[in-house]
């Protein structure tokens, strides 16, 4: 049977995932504990932003991870489309909802930071605009998977969407930066602000790592579910075929 051969690799993945998963969770929790302790208890309030600076510890890692997850998705899509590797297709599909959640959080916390700093909930700031476009890319990718029934066809079309989107991301970043610098209002608080102090940078980096490991933990489980879901689909298709 060719399907056993096709899933030979996913089977090895399942075994690896089962051994690695508890360790990934432990590292994730430890990183979150350290990052939150340093960020909330140790780091001082900013002399300009006050306590509002603490929003950064959940905002910046979310934005970093959203970009990282999209990169993972695009690389997995390229591997899937070039080598026809089923595990790569599954990995790309499983990453998308997690990345979209990070992207949404980057926008939501950015907006919560912007209200006290800028005075409004939403500003068409260069970074927020780029993040918003990234969220649209995620939603388009997820919508493609929802719209196409056959998983093999869906994976090819979705891979094209992911790769074209990945080419688009730096172009959007470049054009939005250019656009914003031309239209920049005079009285706006600068986003990048003063240079980052190490007492802020260390928790920021640890939180970034914590988000990456959280992604890894959730991604591994999602991949496992997706492999299982495809097995279910195949078995059910084979049964209905056998009944006829």
């Amino acid at each position: 049977m060719s399907s056993i051969e096709r899933f030979a690799n996913p089977t090895r993945f399942m075994r690896l995932q089962a051994t690695v998963q508890p360790w990934v969770w432990m590292i994730t929790l430890a990183l979150f504990a350290v990052g939150l302790f340093l960020g909330l208890a140790r780091a001082p309030a900013d002399y300009q932003q006050g306590e509002t600076v603490r929003i950064m510890y959940v905002h910046v890692p979310a934005a970093w991870s959203a970009l990282m997850v999209y990169t993972v998705m695009a690389v997995a899509s390229i591997i899937g489309i070039v080598f026809r590797h089923p595990l790569a297709d599954i990995a790309a599909k499983a990453a998308a909802p997690i990345g979209a959640a990070f992207c949404f959080l980057a926008l939501a916390t950015g907006s919560l930071w912007g209200k006290p700093m800028w005075g409004t909930w939403w500003v068409w700031d260069a970074r927020l605009t780029s993040m918003f476009v990234l969220l649209l890319l995620y939603l388009g990718y997820i919508a493609i998977w929802q719209a196409i029934d056959d998983p093999r066809r869906a994976s090819r079309i979705a891979a094209i969407v992911a790769i074209v989107g990945f080419i688009n991301v730096p172009i959007v970043k470049f054009s939005v930066d250019w656009w914003y610098s031309l239209h920049q209002p005079a009285s706006v608080f600068r986003t990048d602000g003063p240079t980052i102090h190490p007492s802020i940078l260390t928790p920021l980096l640890i939180m970034g790592l914590a988000y990456s490991f959280l992604f890894l933990a959730l991604h591994l489980i999602s991949i496992r579910s997706e492999i299982g879901a495809r097995r279910i689909r195949q078995t059910e298709l084979a049964r209905t075929g056998a009944l006829q």
Binding site: G50, E51, T52, R54, I55, V58, H59, A62, P97, I98, A101, F104, L105, A108, T109, L112, W113, K115, P116, L214, L218
Partner: peptide, 20 residues
């Protein structure tokens, strides 16, 4: 000042990541 915004941004993070 603005502590409400800090708390809400942590709350929204917990809710979204928890739901995910």
């Amino acid at each position: 000042p603005h502590m409400g915004f800090v708390i809400s941004s942590y709350a929204v993070t917990i809710v979204v990541l928890g739901a995910l």
